[in-house]
């Protein structure tokens, strides 16, 4: 047994190189003075510096910002995460609760968090194997055999991903379209589409490739994308908040399609009946 030594060592003592607030004086942000060294950088640059500890140049920042602007913030309240923001608005909850919950649930399996991190993981692992001399077809075959599918290819509701073209246009404009991982992701798509036509690339794979080309690790990319859906959530929240309360896609009772057990009577075995008897309650 290790016992509590680690806890004893850390009691009232947290050693860090991430930063600190010196009240009334200054802030250190990953070794730099926020008000001096970082005062002129954009919020996107600060976010990425906080995540990676590295500074990115303007062209890279335009690419990263373009990912969020073009690909991840549709203000459509039917989308699952946005719908939570809209529900919070229609139920007259707060903006922070709305956006916090909508972002938390964006760490999903069929979209958002898992496809994002697993897309970059697949690309990084695949390139490692290619560097060791493996053939791409074989790597893909093995991946499909092990995991049944490759996240980042195929899409839940529709085959074509409309974000690919504008994002590639931006990458071309910024001269980022021929990196190792972008080439790889298109090669993978070519093979997968030959296998099954519905497996064309979705934006998770392309953004993963672009991020990998800029040197982001798996977790850096995942952390960078955690807030990426936020801009589309606020309009959904505000829209519902500004309309009559409760008006966002209401369900009438009959639109709950019950498929369970038939009607039956409760036979209680708990002590609650000693107080209330075993009578059913009627109106009144």
């Amino acid at each position: 047994m290790n016992g509590p030594q680690i806890l004893l060592d850390h009691e009232q003592h947290w050693v860090t190189d991430m930063g600190a607030w010196f009240p009334g004086e200054r802030v250190v942000f990953r070794g730099k003075d926020l008000f001096h060294d970082l005062k002129d950088i954009s919020w996107m640059a600060l976010l990425l510096y906080g995540i990676t500890g590295r500074m990115f140049d303007d062209r890279q920042l335009r690419l990263f910002e373009g990912m969020w602007t073009l690909c991840t913030s549709y203000p459509d309240p039917r989308l699952w995460n946005n719908r939570v923001a809209a529900l919070a608005g229609t139920a007259r909850s707060t903006a922070a609760l709305a956006i916090g919950a909508a972002n938390a649930m964006s760490e999903a399996s069929v979209y958002g968090g898992r496809p994002l991190i697993r897309s970059i993981d697949f690309l990084l692992r695949t390139q490692e194997q290619l560097d060791k001399g493996a053939r791409l077809e074989e790597v893909i075959k093995q991946e499909l055999k092990t995991y049944k599918r490759i996240l980042g290819f195929g899409r839940p509701l529709i085959r074509k991903d409309e974000r690919i073209a504008p994002m590639m246009k931006l990458a071309e404009d910024l001269e980022f379209c021929d990196g190792t991982y972008i080439k790889l992701v298109f090669s993978v798509e070519k093979i997968l589409v030959r296998h099954r036509s519905c497996l064309s690339m979705n934006i998770a794979a392309l953004l993963a490739a672009m991020s990998a080309d800029q040197g982001l690790s798996r977790y850096e990319y995942y952390h960078f994308m955690v807030l990426c859906f936020s801009a589309g959530m606020f309009p959904c929240y505000s829209d519902a908040l500004n309309k009559p309360e409760g008006a966002f896609f209401p369900f009438r009772c009959e639109r709950v399609d019950y498929q369970g057990k038939p009607r039956r009577k409760w036979i209680s075995t708990s002590g609650i009946n000693k107080v209330n008897g075993n009578e059913s309650f009627q109106d009144g």
Binding site: F251, R252, R255, V256, D257, Q259, G260, K261, R263, R264
Partner: peptide, 27 residues
Amino acid sequence: VIHSRIWEEVPETDNPFAASACFCSGF
């Protein structure tokens, strides 16, 4: 529609959005 094996509702006669009775797994 929302599919459910847990919950069933019967509407009030004057409002389809208000439940007159709620059944949980038949109870």
